[in-house]
Amino acid sequence: MSQPIPGTTLFDGAMARKGYALNKMCFSFNEAANRDAFLRDEDGYCARYRLTPEQREAVRARNVLAMIAAGGNVYYLAKLAGIFGLDVQDLGAQQTGMTKEAFKARLVDAGRA
């Protein structure tokens, strides 16, 4: 059994099952037509994939940490984030509770070490 890392949600088999609908929906965004359909009717698109109320609220709030807690896999969530004009640095900033600028500065500092 692995030790928990404070502030980290472990993505294991249970979380994969919990987040299946959310991750399946995010995978669908590989196709431009699906991204357009989501933007036209976000609620209807989420209903089509049968997102749970927890997942739906996390998507509505654009809250990456809540999406991860609802079973989202960050690699699939990046596809959803792209629809909103967010990049991986935006996701990292949300995950660490930092501004994007502070997160980017931290990356630069880590690269110098």
Results as ranks from 00 to 15, higher is better:
residue 13 G to H: 11
residue 54 E to D: 13
residue 41 D to L: 05
residue 43 D to N: 13
residue 75 Y to H: 13
residue 28 S to L: 01
residue 107 L to A: 03
residue 100 K to A: 04
residue 65 L to S: 00
residue 55 Q to P: 03
residue 30 N to S: 13
residue 107 L to T: 15
residue 78 A to E: 15
residue 3 Q to Y: 14
residue 106 R to Y: 09
residue 74 V to A: 03
residue 105 A to V: 04
residue 65 L to E: 11
residue 85 G to H: 10
residue 17 R to F: 07
residue 2 S to F: 13
residue 44 G to Y: 12
residue 100 K to L: 06
residue 42 E to G: 00
residue 2 S to W: 14
residue 109 D to G: 10
residue 106 R to E: 03
residue 65 L to H: 07
residue 63 N to V: 12
residue 5 I to P: 08
residue 54 E to N: 02
residue 78 A to L: 14
residue 44 G to S: 15
residue 58 A to Y: 02
residue 29 F to Y: 07
residue 66 A to H: 00
residue 34 N to H: 05
residue 19 G to L: 12
residue 21 A to R: 10
residue 88 V to N: 09
residue 29 F to L: 07
residue 98 M to A: 06
residue 88 V to E: 05
residue 48 R to S: 01
residue 58 A to R: 06
residue 55 Q to I: 05
residue 110 A to W: 15
residue 14 A to P: 03
residue 17 R to D: 11
residue 35 R to D: 06
residue 37 A to L: 07
residue 105 A to D: 05
residue 100 K to W: 04
residue 72 G to S: 00
residue 60 R to V: 00
residue 67 M to Q: 11
residue 34 N to R: 14
residue 94 Q to L: 10
residue 65 L to T: 03
residue 13 G to W: 06
residue 94 Q to P: 13
residue 20 Y to N: 10
residue 25 M to F: 06
residue 74 V to E: 05
residue 37 A to E: 12
residue 101 E to A: 01
residue 46 C to L: 12
residue 59 V to N: 01
residue 88 V to G: 14
residue 72 G to K: 02
residue 102 A to S: 15
residue 45 Y to F: 06
residue 32 A to I: 13
residue 68 I to K: 02
residue 1 M to F: 10
residue 6 P to L: 08
residue 73 N to R: 13
residue 75 Y to S: 15
residue 6 P to G: 09
residue 106 R to Q: 14
residue 38 F to R: 06
residue 98 M to V: 10
residue 42 E to R: 00
residue 67 M to I: 07
residue 104 K to I: 15
residue 61 A to D: 15
residue 20 Y to R: 07
residue 50 R to Y: 07
residue 18 K to V: 00
residue 109 D to S: 15
residue 25 M to T: 00
residue 72 G to N: 01
residue 104 K to F: 03
residue 84 F to A: 01
residue 8 T to V: 15
residue 63 N to Y: 01
residue 2 S to P: 07
residue 19 G to R: 04
residue 27 F to P: 04
residue 108 V to T: 15
residue 83 I to T: 14
residue 64 V to A: 05
residue 84 F to H: 02
residue 86 L to N: 02
residue 92 G to R: 05
residue 55 Q to D: 02
residue 80 L to G: 07
residue 88 V to F: 02
residue 41 D to G: 07
residue 59 V to P: 09
residue 59 V to K: 03
residue 37 A to H: 09
residue 65 L to M: 15
residue 59 V to Y: 04
residue 99 T to M: 01
residue 19 G to V: 11
residue 73 N to Y: 14
residue 27 F to K: 12
residue 100 K to S: 09
residue 39 L to F: 08
residue 4 P to D: 12
residue 83 I to Y: 07
residue 22 L to E: 11
residue 62 R to K: 01
residue 34 N to Y: 03
residue 110 A to V: 13
residue 19 G to D: 02
residue 54 E to T: 11
residue 104 K to R: 14
residue 31 E to T: 14
